[in-house]
Design a protein around this nucleic acid. Structure first.
Lengths: 255, 255
DNA sequence: ATAATAGTGTCTCTCAGACACTATACC
DNA sequence: GGTATAGTGTCTGAGAGACACTATTAT
């Protein structure tokens, strides 16, 4: 390739030559608590879908990468930094936003429940936008929804169902599939727990995500054999029974 | 939500209010042949990256879904219709295209080798754009590349290495990870074979994708037990040894 | 002591890998 | 018959599920 050719070409290039839709990122901030998967949702105060609940999102700036945009959304709307973040899927149906063509690159972030609650509280101080941590009602048991499975529903702690804006129910459906599919093969479960956790807590998280009970013995064996956890020598406190050992997540070598 | 409110809002909405990058789809058209994974590549005749090889791609029209755009690219540049197509990942580094900000939603398509060769030949009649079906040199053995693994390289049948345009080496790296990860859990292998195939051919495909030998007996057992294949009663012909039974892919029930 | 959960030892069942053997085509 | 690959029967070892048992804390 000839560099001066390329420089001349770039000078003459017209960036308006192709149609350009708007580009947004939406972030599902996920946690697990009390046998439920939960996500942070915001109630829309503007049209479209005013009054319905949407994932936090934002438009991508021209000089920022998609990952950076997702991290910015997480920081601005969730008050969280340094959490596990992964690109999920890109949604681009022409009519998914009635305003104009908007393509949304969906991300998901995983955080332990206590940290999410703290972040939501400090975030509510800064902004009046209604915020909720809603439970997912997943109407199918396996990784992949069978044909004809209904959409995912959201329910607040007080029991009220939250109507979902845009195609965000589809985003949540893909999210649940990704979580269930990757949980055993990647270090996702740990991301939903605090730094120190018991194996029982980790099993609870897995059971919440997979929506089925797991065998205690074989779960312990598998986790300990994976080499992804290390005993700390500490034990939990303030429990009414024999306290369990606390473990911590060990990043797999070379990654 | 109030419908007339929403209608009034839409009328007043200014679609120029947010920066809008260009949006493209790129499609990796994949096949397996002679113990190699292969992809269709085009040699760029324009800047940028003139002379280097890129995945077929195109900009997304404002009234077309992402999937439709990918199918259009497949039809226009590869001459193929009705093949397996799946969204892979979205690439959005600010400098990935030196012209302007271009976000690329990458797809991959799977097709059997004979069909790809036929499509390439008829496509070469229509267009003078240099086209190649290049072998992937994957420099890591497992599903996920270890830290410090080199980039994927492309090699033509005549042995010549093809320099890669844009960030398409990254696209190919994610592609290989997806293929290796999903091969056992989803019906991907069949998509790389013609309608009728022998179990040996299917095993060859799996070995090519995973880049490691598989146990014949247990592979046969697993495939037959999966219920995804059905014997046709026919046998292969023109082989110098005992002909194997031909099987066909049976779509999993309910999908 | 009792209650409750943590954690371990062991048996069984399933399944992948390995090997050996038989079957069947063309030469 | 020779050769090459298809296809099957059987053993073995690894690992998950199931169950029973011991351990350890608070009350």
């Amino acid at each position: 390739m000839n560099d001066s050719d390329e420089a001349a070409f770039l000078k003459a290039y017209d960036p308006e030559a192709f149609p350009r839709p708007s580009l947004a990122v939406d972030v599902a901030l996920v946690t697990a608590h009390e046998a439920r998967l939960k996500v942070l949702m915001l109630q829309r105060e503007a049209q479209p879908f005013r009054g319905r609940w949407s994932l936090p999102g934002g438009f991508v700036a021209l000089d920022e990468s998609l990952d950076d945009a997702a991290r910015r959304v997480l920081r601005d709307k969730g008050g969280l930094d340094g959490v596990y973040l992964e690109q999920l899927y890109t949604f681009g149906a022409p009519d998914r936003d009635p305003r104009t063509r908007v393509i949304s690159v969906a991300y998901f972030a995983l955080v332990d429940h206590a940290r999410l609650v703290a972040a939501v509280e400090s975030s509510s101080d800064r902004s009046a936008e209604p915020i909720a941590v809603a439970s997912l009602d997943v109407p199918w048991p396996d990784e992949v929804p069978p044909a004809g499975a209904g959409p995912i529903a959201l329910r607040r702690d007080d029991g009220e169902a939250l109507p979902i804006a845009f195609d965000h129910a589809d985003v949540l459906a893909v999210l649940v599939q990704r979580l269930r599919g990757k949980l055993d093969y990647a270090a996702l479960g740990f991301q939903l727990l605090p730094d120190r956790f018991t194996l029982r807590q980790l099993q609870d998280v897995h059971e919440v995500v997979l929506a089925r009970p797991l065998n205690k013995d074989s779960f312990r064996r598998r986790v300990l054999a994976s080499g992804l956890v290390a005993a700390t020598g500490e034990r939990e406190t303030d429990v009414v029974h024999r306290p369990a050992e606390l473990y911590r997540f060990v990043r797999p070598s070379g990654v």
